[in-house]
Design a protein around this nucleic acid. Structure first.
Ligand SMILES: [Mn+2]
Ligand SMILES: [Mn+2]
Ligand SMILES: [Zn+2]
Ligand SMILES: [Zn+2]
Lengths: 138, 138
DNA sequence: TAATTCATGCAATGGAAGTGCATTAATTGA
DNA sequence: TCAATTAATGCACTTCCATTGCATGAATTA
């Protein structure tokens, strides 16, 4: 698609076939994905390339990492106005223990957390585990 | 020490030399420890034994796991009146990005987290990253 | 076009978690 | 006390994921 290429260029990410595919894959999936998910979606692609592509996306700040506690790092596209680097606009992440999916709750911001005197809070990782909306209706 | 043996027995954990050592090690350290930390503290001990000892401690609920996002699981002794299994009494964990230590902020409970309609929150993992009290004075 | 820079692919490494099985230590109960 | 049973320990091995070095291919620039 035209749009993705322009998007990547606007973030000064050089456009390649692989990068377009991965970017589209991330935007189509409405949940966070592991490297292995992408790997299985594109058999012909090498894991290292995927790894470095995601890393590039992270550095250029169109993707953010999620540590959902499963031991496998997940990734998701950032929202249009996201500032992953700053501490503003950090949203919750939800991990469903039934279907295993991890999703961004972009409308739910992390509350201000108090820490004891002498401690300096710079970043907060908050993952809620439980049953997601799709699994809870069954 | 007499105390530790009685403590283990009170939790129906069979007392062994290794378990006393590890339990003391955990209580002396005032921060969460990784398996490799214990491994290095007791060269003669086998990693598998440490692994299973910690697992036993967890099952008997005298130790809780901490996922601080470093990719290495940390462990810490539970507070006297802790109910790790339940969702009450969950305290914050702080990971210092300077000295690498991870500590329990037992006096700071995790605030109630709202999730969207249809989602059921069962557990929350919250890790604050930043500079700890010891590192911030330098 | 030639030189350079960057992306990709393959192979290998390393760390950590976890398991099977044999051996040793502790407990039970006859 | 001694034999039978059960639990703890140690060693070897495996799996999974993350990460890097190096060679090659593609794209950009001068
Ligand atoms: Mn997110
Ligand atoms: Mn704790
Ligand atoms: Zn689900
Ligand atoms: Zn520190």
């Amino acid at each position: 698609m035209q749009g993705v290429e322009a998007f990547l260029e606007s973030k000064s990410i050089r456009v390649t076939a692989m990068r377009i595919l991965i970017c589209n894959f991330l935007s189509d999936k409405h949940e966070a994905v592991a490297l292995s998910d992408i790997e299985h979606a594109f058999d012909k692609a090498d894991r290292t390339t995927l790894y470095r592509t995601i890393k590039t996306f992270e550095e250029k700040e169109i993707v953010h990492q999620i540590d959902d506690g499963t031991g496998v790092t997940k990734y998701a596209l950032c929202e249009p106005n996201c500032h992953c680097d700053l501490d503003t606009d950090l949203h919750l992440h939800f991990h469903c223990t039934q279907c295993g999916s991890t999703i961004c709750l972009t409308d739910h911001k992390i509350p201000k957390i108090k820490v004891p005197k002498g401690f300096i809070a710079e970043h907060v990782n908050l993952v809620v585990k439980g049953i997601c909306d799709k699994c809870s209706i069954n």
